[in-house]
């Protein structure tokens, strides 16, 4: 028989770690935002997101897409480590032992709370060896110049590292490349 007392061994049940009401904290006196773990957060206003596109284009021209992707990769690499630590601490279990479904649900919720829009994983192409990540309401696409070309390079970079690291370290099921669908501004 199942004992509820055993289920509640530590008297706590992990729920939505990334609920914005508890995840994001502000200290107005100090001009600081932080996460529930005490890590510093920043809110990028839309004027800064726009400026990243125009500023980089001014300085690096055509290469700006590559630059953004590379910045996204660095961003993703560091963010992934943090995400992993946060989840491992909260669920009190190493990521390698965490159910994939819980990992993905946390990632989706994290995406929402950070205001990056919504994301979902589409497995329709898994027989061809890649995974499609769809994002909606991307603030990056929303603030980028409306050129009709893909613009979510930052997200692509983040996802490439993010899902790549998860695959490499924890989940042999992601056997081949992780690919992203980058929605264009016109897709929205």
């Amino acid at each position: 028989m199942i004992s509820v007392a055993d289920l509640l061994m530590s008297d706590r049940l992990p729920a939505n770690y990334y609920a914005h009401e508890v995840y994001v904290r502000g200290d107005l006196e100090m001009g600081l935002l932080e996460s529930r773990r005490g890590d510093r957060l920043l809110a990028l206003p839309q004027t800064l997101v726009q400026a990243m596109y125009t500023g980089l284009t001014k300085e690096t021209g055509q290469a700006s897409k590559l630059v953004l992707f590379n910045c996204g990769r660095w961003w993703g690499k560091n963010f992934y480590n943090r995400f992993q630590e946060e989840l491992a601490d909260y669920y009190d279990t190493p990521l390698s032992e965490m159910a994939m479904a819980d990992f993905l649900q946390s990632l989706k919720q994290c995406w929402i709370t950070y205001g990056w829009g919504k994301m979902d994983l589409d497995q329709s192409y898994h027989h061809r060896g890649f995974l499609v990540v769809q994002t909606w309401n991307s603030p990056f696409a929303n603030q980028a110049p409306q050129t009709g070309l893909p613009v979510c390079f930052l997200e692509a970079g983040i996802l490439a590292v993010f899902l790549g690291s998860y695959r490499a370290k924890n989940c042999t099921a992601f056997r081949r490349v992780v690919s992203q669908q980058m929605p264009t501004a016109t897709d929205l």
Partner: peptide, 15 residues
């Protein structure tokens, strides 16, 4: 709704 259900509905769906 905002603290639990928005998240739990996703979990229920996944599992």
């Amino acid at each position: 709704q905002s603290r639990l259900l928005n998240w739990l509905s996703g979990v229920v769906q996944i599992h």
